Simulated assay, not measured.
Amino acid sequence: MFLARFHTAEVSPELRFAAWHEMTSKALIGTVVSTDDVDDFTAAVGVLDLGAVQISVVAYPALRAARTIRLIRRSDPGRLYVTIPLRGRLGVSHLGREADVGTGHFVVIDTSRPGVVVNRRPVEHLIVEVPRSELPRSWAMGSVMARPLPVGQGTGALMVNTARQMMRSAEAYGPADGRRLATVVIDLVVVALAGHAGEDGAVRDAGQRLLQPRILDFIEKRLPDLTLSPSVVAAAHNISVRYLQLLFREQGMTVTGWIRERRLERCRRDLRDPELAGRPVHAIGARWGFPDPTAFSRAFKQAFGVSPGDYRRGHL
């Protein structure tokens, strides 16, 4: 997982358009681009690569970008672009359709098929890229491709808001977060598209898959709470404890074991933090749900093979 940002102000004026085109062709997809603003080209792009999924925010002046058969033959990533204007409008010519897409709507583009995107005024838009293979093969995608689809207040809005929040908080994610976040984004895209494609079964399946990331987030935010337990987690999500345990069992873990693992990981992080060097070891354990120093020391050593004190001395 990595985050990359680029603004044309970083290079001299005569190189800005060429640098931006090169950056976007590598980070996004290859297109033939033309603009009347070559001499005064101001644009920016931010890309969050989660592995299977990529989220981007791009802003640029009026231009025309064409995805040609020649470029597709040269490089075909087999992905869908879910594009949401945040400012301005996009004119999309794709799959024999013409779509005028503004804020409050999104449009789906197949990178394996030719198309043209035009904006006559400056625009900023969010792009969520997902592998075409992640969508059910049985779907009749023709009903959703290259059409302005309303974001609305439901799953479409959730998809957009989640993707924007991931971009804003990208620096806070660790290397291991990419895969989990990618799964969340794919499920949100599936749910958002399923309603327009008339696939109610996919909505239910994706909704079930989205439950576990919400549960994990709930646990993560409440690790210091000594009352955190399977029953508390289940009640917060309106499910039974038995069903909660089943969700975790499918991933090869238990609810209690996951809570314990995450608490110990937070303790380990604090023990190697120089700014917390003056805080007693037992206080760090108590902060993350281990009020008994002896039990904390035993659990930490069992998990990491060394006592909390020895771990701190070896990492500060």
Rank of each mutant, 00 (worst) to 15 (best):
residue 3 L to Y: 08
residue 4 A to R: 14
residue 5 R to Y: 02
residue 5 R to G: 13
residue 6 F to N: 01
residue 9 A to P: 13
residue 12 S to G: 01
residue 16 R to F: 14
residue 18 A to I: 13
residue 18 A to P: 05
residue 19 A to T: 11
residue 20 W to A: 13
residue 20 W to M: 15
residue 27 A to H: 03
residue 33 V to H: 09
residue 36 D to A: 15
residue 37 D to P: 09
residue 39 D to F: 11
residue 41 F to E: 07
residue 43 A to D: 01
residue 45 V to P: 02
residue 45 V to Q: 04
residue 45 V to C: 10
residue 46 G to P: 01
residue 47 V to I: 08
residue 47 V to F: 10
residue 50 L to W: 04
residue 51 G to S: 09
residue 55 I to F: 14
residue 56 S to I: 03
residue 56 S to D: 11
residue 58 V to K: 15
residue 59 A to I: 11
residue 59 A to L: 03
residue 64 R to D: 08
residue 67 R to Y: 06
residue 68 T to R: 08
residue 70 R to G: 07
residue 77 P to S: 11
residue 78 G to K: 12
residue 80 L to V: 04
residue 80 L to A: 05
residue 81 Y to K: 09
residue 82 V to A: 13
residue 83 T to H: 06
residue 84 I to N: 00
residue 84 I to A: 05
residue 95 L to G: 08
residue 101 V to N: 08
residue 102 G to P: 00
residue 103 T to S: 01
residue 107 V to Q: 05
residue 109 I to L: 00
residue 110 D to H: 15
residue 110 D to N: 05
residue 110 D to G: 09
residue 113 R to W: 11
residue 115 G to Y: 09
residue 115 G to H: 04
residue 115 G to K: 00
residue 117 V to M: 09
residue 119 N to S: 12
residue 126 L to H: 06
residue 131 P to I: 07
residue 137 R to S: 11
residue 138 S to M: 06
residue 142 G to P: 04
residue 143 S to R: 10
residue 147 R to V: 13
residue 148 P to D: 01
residue 153 Q to I: 10
residue 155 T to L: 12
residue 155 T to N: 14
residue 157 A to I: 07
residue 157 A to K: 07
residue 158 L to H: 01
residue 160 V to D: 04
residue 164 R to L: 13
residue 166 M to P: 01
residue 172 A to M: 10
residue 173 Y to C: 00
residue 174 G to E: 11
residue 178 G to N: 14
residue 178 G to F: 15
residue 179 R to Y: 05
residue 180 R to W: 13
residue 184 V to A: 08
residue 185 V to L: 12
residue 187 D to M: 07
residue 195 G to I: 11
residue 198 G to A: 03
residue 199 E to N: 04
residue 202 A to L: 13
residue 204 R to T: 11
residue 206 A to H: 02
residue 208 Q to N: 08
residue 211 L to D: 02
residue 213 P to I: 08
residue 214 R to V: 05
residue 215 I to E: 06
residue 216 L to Y: 11
residue 216 L to A: 04
residue 217 D to K: 04
residue 217 D to L: 03
residue 220 E to F: 15
residue 224 P to V: 04
residue 229 S to K: 04
residue 231 S to E: 12
residue 235 A to W: 14
residue 238 N to T: 02
residue 239 I to W: 08
residue 240 S to H: 11
residue 243 Y to A: 06
residue 248 F to I: 05
residue 254 T to G: 02
residue 255 V to I: 13
residue 257 G to S: 08
residue 257 G to W: 00
residue 258 W to Q: 15
residue 260 R to T: 09
residue 262 R to E: 02
residue 264 L to K: 06
residue 264 L to G: 03
residue 267 C to I: 06
residue 270 D to I: 06
residue 270 D to L: 13
residue 274 P to M: 00
residue 276 L to A: 10
residue 281 V to R: 15
residue 282 H to Q: 10
residue 283 A to F: 11
residue 285 G to R: 00
residue 287 R to T: 07
residue 291 P to R: 00
residue 291 P to S: 02
residue 298 R to Y: 04
residue 302 Q to E: 15
residue 302 Q to V: 04
residue 302 Q to Y: 08
residue 305 G to W: 07
residue 309 G to I: 14
residue 310 D to A: 14
residue 313 R to T: 11
residue 313 R to S: 14
